[in-house]
């Protein structure tokens, strides 16, 4: 008898859940994920927004006192003696370097990524899957390990310098590591799969009869590329550019390991303020500025996608 009651109890619990309105059921299923992301994802973001308007504590942390000092610090330096503000460029430079290097990484990835994606998309299906798998693997492997391996390549005694000296281009080892070039190359190398995969996805969908039709209508190779292939793969190109730009802009490892911590990007500036510099409000303000840049890029991208979808419809 007791067993039977169990069955009944279970049934009523199930019935009660399944007879709830759909929206209520969804809410119940969503709430654990939402609670976790809310508490440990969104609330911390809110907190550093608040921190960015506070005063730094002497040994890290914050003093609860409203201040715009953190944001002012980006453009002006306060004189220690008379407290006057003088305009300075060093933080602005870090921001500019971040945007420029991320932009260069996008251009580089596009120049290598589009031909690669096209080449893969025009292979026979078996080979295509193998090649795409090869591009996918680095996408999921450890970024730290990959950046470290790039360090090994670029070292003064590294293989790249050996080759350059071997073929007589350089007489003594070039200092490749700890330069802006190294950071740029590192970004390109880190995020190249992010460019290839979306472009491949849209090229793969192209009906190649369209290309035949274009040739039939007297287009040459260049015109086909310009008028057919690039326009039709534009969604993938835009997606790839976005996916490379965002992590490049906020990159920490490439400038840290390949730039040697001397050529900072925004990511390093933020980490530094929460680490050795112990200026949490300034770090929080830098994080907010980075987040805003990312959200702006996201909005531009989302708007473009929406417009394209409207045009299709």
């Amino acid at each position: 008898m007791a067993e039977r009651r169990d069955v009944v109890d279970q049934a009523t619990w199930v019935d009660r859940f399944s007879s709830l309105p759909a929206a209520r059921r969804s809410l119940i299923l969503l709430s654990p994920a939402f609670a976790l992301i809310g508490a440990f994802g969104l609330a911390p973001l809110g907190l550093i927004l608040v921190y960015s308007f506070l005063v730094p504590g002497t040994y890290g942390g914050v003093v609860w006192e409203l201040s715009f000092g953190a944001y002012i610090q980006f453009l002006f330096e306060r004189d220690i003696f008379d407290g006057t503000l003088t305009f300075h460029l060093s933080y602005l430079q870090i921001g500019a370097r971040s945007v420029i290097l991320a932009g260069l990484a996008v251009v580089g990835c596009l120049l290598i990524g589009f031909p690669t994606a096209y080449f893969i998309a025009t292979r026979p299906p078996g080979l295509r899957n193998v090649l795409i798998f090869l591009v996918t693997v680095p996408f999921w492997t450890n970024l730290l390990v990959r950046t470290f391996s790039m360090m090994l390549i670029l070292r003064d005694q590294g293989p790249l310098n050996s080759i350059l000296m071997g073929i007589g281009i350089a007489e003594k080892p070039l200092s490749l590591l700890y330069t802006d070039f190294a950071i740029g190359l590192g970004l390109l190398y880190s995020f190249l799969p992010f460019m290839v995969l979306p472009i491949y996805a849209s090229l793969e969908r192209i009906d190649f009869r369209l290309v035949e039709a274009a040739y039939d209508l007297y287009a040459n190779r260049w015109r086909v590329l310009q008028r057919i292939l690039i326009p039709l793969s534009l969604p993938g190109i835009a997606g790839g550019c976005f996916l490379v730009f965002i992590p490049s802009l906020s990159s920490f490892l490439a400038p840290d390991l390949l730039g040697g911590g001397k050529h900072l990007m925004i990511g390093n500036l933020i980490a530094q303020q929460f680490g050795t510099a112990r200026n949490w409000p300034f770090g929080a303000a830098a994080a907010m500025i980075l987040l805003s840049l990312v959200l702006i890029a996201l909005m531009i991208y989302a708007r473009q996608v929406a417009r394209r979808e409207r045009n299709v419809a």
Binding site: G41, L45, P247, F252, G267, A271, A287, L290
Partner: peptide, 9 residues
């Protein structure tokens, strides 16, 4: 959200 921002947050 960029990883570094999540990290310091």
């Amino acid at each position: 959200v960029p990883e570094i921002v999540t990290a310091v947050a």
